[in-house]
Amino acid sequence: MSTTTSELEVAHGGVPAGKEHVYSQQPVLSARNIVITFGRVVGLDGVDLDLYPGEVLAVIGDNGAGKSTLIKCLTGAYVPDSGEIKLNGERVSFRRPQDARDAGIETVYQQLAVIPALDIASNLYLGREDRRKGPLGSVLRMLDKKGMEKRAGESVRNLGIQTIQNMGQAVETLSGGQRQAVAVARAAAFGSKVIVLDEPTAALGVKESGMVLDMVKQLRDKGLSVILISHNMPQVWDVADRIHIQRLGGRAGVITPETHDMGEGVAIMTGATKLSEDAP
């Protein structure tokens, strides 16, 4: 696998120490040359991205660098104009969010995509409700409310969230951090391969941010791959294994918290310095 390793060095500007074995595997998710335009505005100008099993890949970049656009392309919310996305080595093309979810990619969007008026259990199962067994479910199409409520409670507790007890509570009565926890719990309950979190701590206080970051680490420890979009550099350097830097609709490079400090990361992000490995 020596050729693969050298390719990786070029593509990633470093691999976390002691984890070389992970990065010699096939990426869970890889994107090549993703291009998307909105009218005359170029959203993404040929972006590559690789996500490996059991890692937290942070995506950082200035406003308008294309972070959210990139993950929307990876999760079916946008359909890229061109480019290739592979999941476990197989080429995929998502036409809508449901396609990506069916393939095992769960997304927690910046706007959370929870329904305030519905309760927690309903939100967790929204779009993939379980029906009752027997003719009540198959003929009358009745929902298995009790079962879903019970399993929703388990999903939430699995993430170590103590503050939410009543799954019948409307989401709008929750705090920002609790809502985020519901959204993450939903992703964790159904995401079999990849979980994408778009700015999960942007609207949260220090304590609640800590809770969400703990959840992110737990997801990784369970073997899931996580893409974390964030503006918060200390948080990124705290949880990320590798950091994908997005700049001007393209990838400026990939670094690790060990090889580069925050200042260097921000310098690459703003274009003050260029990552030599990735220089054309």
């Binding site: 969010p97 959370l112 329904i115 008026a117 929204l126 779009g127 929902l143």
Partner: peptide, 23 residues
Amino acid sequence: QTAWGRYVYAVGDDAESARLSGV
């Protein structure tokens, strides 16, 4: 009692979030 009914509420409350949730 049905998923359709739940989707009616979801679409009315926040159509974009409902769409992103797979409704």
